[in-house]
Design a protein around this nucleic acid. Structure first.
Lengths: 363, 363
DNA sequence: CCGGATCGAGCAATGGATTGCAGGTATCCA
DNA sequence: TGGATACCTGCAATCCATTGCTCGATCCGG
């Protein structure tokens, strides 16, 4: 049907085309590249084709259907660049992961990747594409501004503030459509969605203490603001409970993590009986190291992780952890970003962490 | 210095501007949005500014530096859409994950996410941006063609063929700049980079047999072609070694995996003493389930995973697994894609898998 | 002192879709 | 049959950077 009509159109065209005949029939048979090409085939103007493909009510329903069928038949899609240039909307959201305090960290960090997955879900459903950028901060705000001013994105989601809080803050002064996953400080300019890390740290230590731990270690680097806050909460809870509390810095580099944990655990003369890890991944490594050292979990040492990634339920034994609502957070990020894109104001969201008790703290 | 010059320019402009004076000085002070704006400030034409910012030798070095300084000072970046429309290059590579046989699988699958991370690294270094698309195949090739014909990307990387091998194959006939991670069939049209899954499956079973296993189970769904191939290799090796071999299907949905494994393991009356898992994640779950069932690993049951993700080294006990070279694969994908974008032909790459022996098969 | 070479900069066309406004046609009613 | 109304469709400007070609100026050697 469509093909038939196509033929007819083509012929009538040739009849009128005269001098341009061969060129036209050639390009028509070859490939339809532009609105104008399709317009010629359909015997209408480019403007009408544009309206028809956009499904506007302004064109006759019959004409619209005919043009849409023709477009489908030729596999034609309007050039996105031209469209985006004209409309000023790109339909793309930039997702940036600043690799701040630890260059090797985030790219394979399961937490960020999990969040990324959920963001992909949410954005796709909202009709946006997702452009992923890794950014390696160089001391200036350039890594962010390069994206805001690229004209390529309608908005930006920053995953993790790392040690770049001030940069995000500064950019937020002039660039509205941006939200960040991470820490919230009262009075800050940028819209943030995240977990109450301090409370999370506190809950973790309180649970350890309740499980009988007296000598508690915090495992992880406190370079990024999120983890530093968890540390603070943990330290406060330990002090309140009169428990001993030490900080054992561990980098998140996958390969080196095991040996490092071994080293810091051996390096302290404190009889550690409770560990709060900065992330589930660290907790998982600690679990293995302790197993190899012959120290029973949770018998001798109790462990609490952070994040509640899917893998936390699959460790041996399954990991007690502080849950962050990642899926909900992703939804909140996208919803707030869309609100900001529309020019309306938004509020930051601080989600409560939740203790998930599994096997590493059962006594 | 730059600011000074700017002022001067502005004033001389106002002197010339006459009727347009207020409007011009307004927009100049407000914000520089287009090449033309900057050109006015610099007292040159838009074309010159374009060339200057592109660093072309055609403009006087002094003028070029002046314009660049001015652009920096005003935080001006040329509109990407206009540029891309004009040049026909987008500088964006689409990365697509077809969610084929298991809708819930890939989005949080650590393997794909790890590969994605490495791709982000490689593409960034090559000066490309990465646009991420999830695609839910609907029986037609539309999910892929929507991206190829969007005009938004210079090329496409498909992560995992899933059950969409034929779709990729068909699109590859007419769309050149595309490469896929996954299985290679001799004579196929599309360029693929992947691991020899059959060999991997074989090596896994051979190693299990050598470790003393006689009753071997394959844990995992064989809906996707990659895993089906691993299964085939494993089955062949088992037959060659005269070992008993069963297939226990397990979905990759995170939450349900543990109970499922428990169920299938309990459901078979075979005294399983060797497990080859379709992925490290499944192996990790199996490890935990067996631990809970009170069956010793590797004493009673030996386990081999697949992928060698970072977490494989951190399980308790550390996982013996079949390593895929993910970083190298990412590099190969990007290199081949660039070659194809340049119009040159490429060859598929089948990388050999490598057995990494850790603790789950030591006897 | 003049012609040619050389370097630098401007002009204007180009890429392709979108959209406000003007104009045309058909339908329908008086 | 004339005129009005509603409904379509076409025209042309617009979004903004890029680049081939042209023109002008400066400088050098003859």
């Amino acid at each position: 049907m469509a093909g038939n009509e196509d033929q007819t159109m083509d012929k009538s065209l040739e009849g009128q085309g005269l001098g341009e005949e061969t060129q036209l029939s050639e390009s028509a048979k070859q490939h339809v590249r532009t609105l104008a090409d399709l317009a010629r085939l359909a015997g209408v103007s480019a403007g009408t084709v544009s309206r028809a493909l956009a499904g506007k009510a302004l064109v006759n329903a019959e004409t619209r259907d005919r043009i849409q069928a023709l477009a489908r038949h030729h596999g034609f899609k309007p050039n996105q660049m031209a469209s985006k240039l004209r409309t000023g909307r790109t339909g793309v959201i930039g997702v940036v992961i600043p690799l701040g305090h630890e260059k090797r960290q985030t790219i394979s960090d399961p937490f960020f990747l999990t969040l990324l997955g959920h963001l992909a879900d949410e954005l796709t459903e909202s009709g946006y594409d997702l452009m992923l950028s890794r950014a390696i901060p160089d001391g200036t705000a350039d890594w962010l501004e390069r994206i805001t001013s690229s004209g390529m994105v309608d908005g930006i989601i920053v995953i993790g503030q790392s040690d770049q809080f001030h940069v995000i803050e500064r950019v937020a002064q002039s660039y509205r459509p941006m939200v960040a996953w991470g820490h919230y400080r009262s009075g800050q300019a940028h819209c943030a969605v995240g977990t109450d890390n301090e409370l999370g740290g506190r809950i973790a230590v309180e649970h350890l203490v309740a499980s009988g731990a007296r000598n508690i270690a915090f495992l992880g680097q406190t370079g990024g603001i999120e983890i530093a806050t968890r540390y603070r909460g943990a330290a406060m809870a330990a002090e309140a409970a009169n428990a001993t509390f030490v900080h054992l810095p561990v980098e998140l580099a996958d390969a080196a993590m095991g040996p490092q944990i071994e080293q810091v655990l051996a390096g302290t003369d404190l009889p550690i009986d409770g560990i709060v890890a900065a992330s589930d991944l660290i907790a998982m490594s600690a679990l293995r190291v302790l197993h190899e050292m012959g120290r029973a979990v949770p018998g001798e040492v109790r462990i609490v992780g952070f994040d509640d990634l899917p893998l936390a339920a699959q460790t041996t034994p399954p990991l007690t952890t502080i849950r962050q609502e990642i899926a909900e957070g992703a939804r909140a990020l996208v919803e707030r970003l869309r609100t900001r894109i529309e020019g309306r104001p938004t509020q930051s969201l601080v989600m409560p962490p939740r203790l998930v008790v599994r096997q590493t703290t059962r006594s």
